[in-house]
Simulated assay, not measured.
Amino acid sequence: MVRPVRDADLGDILAWRNQPHVRAGMFTQHEIAPDEHHSWFERSTNNVARRLLIVERAGIPLGFVNFDGVEAGGIATWGFYAAVGAPGGSGSVMGAAALSFIFSDTALHKVCGQVLGFNHASLRMHEKLGFRQEGLLRQQHRMGDTYHDIICFGLLREEWAGN
């Protein structure tokens, strides 16, 4: 089941986002403070082109998915992370559920994702879900003294429908 984020979810989402293994694969890796988190949520809920979603299985949250740029015929970007304690393989289940939801609930043309080159689990998940690699931004993201590649992915509505 896919549902919109509720106020009651904010504590869980912050805890999931601040897990060290989650932060390690994110473009922004600092620990998010509660006030920063609440400001983000307020801005996001006032943005009609953004969907904040929780994916559940049997009433238990598997994780969080965000789509930005949602509009008819539009091209949205997405991001996601699993709940603390989510079973192995939850990322693919969560991604498939969220993509089915967003393509059936909206008239999006395409969903795009960007993955840091060292995040092999996310790279595999995008490929498993049918995304195609559309680009490589070499040494595009700086973390400390190291530059990392960004892999760009895209999934068209008709590709998902045939998936």
Rank of each mutant, 00 (worst) to 15 (best):
V84S: 15
V84Q: 15
G85Q: 07
P87G: 03
G88Y: 03
G89I: 05
G89A: 01
S90K: 04
S90T: 10
S90V: 00
G91I: 06
G91A: 08
M94Y: 00
M94S: 00
A96E: 09
A96Q: 10
A97N: 05
A98W: 04
S100D: 13
S100I: 00
S100H: 12
I102V: 15
F103D: 01
S104W: 12
D105Q: 10
T106P: 04
A107Q: 13
H109F: 06
H109G: 10
H109I: 07
H109S: 09
K110D: 01
K110H: 08
V111L: 00
V111W: 06
C112Q: 14
G113W: 04
G113K: 01
Q114V: 12
Q114W: 10
Q114M: 05
V115Y: 02
V115K: 10
G117P: 05
G117W: 11
G117F: 00
F118N: 07
F118C: 02
N119M: 01
S122F: 11
L123S: 11
L123H: 15
L123Q: 09
R124F: 13
M125G: 02
H126D: 06
E127Y: 00
E127P: 05
E127W: 01
E127I: 06
E127D: 08
K128P: 08
K128W: 00
K128L: 08
L129Q: 00
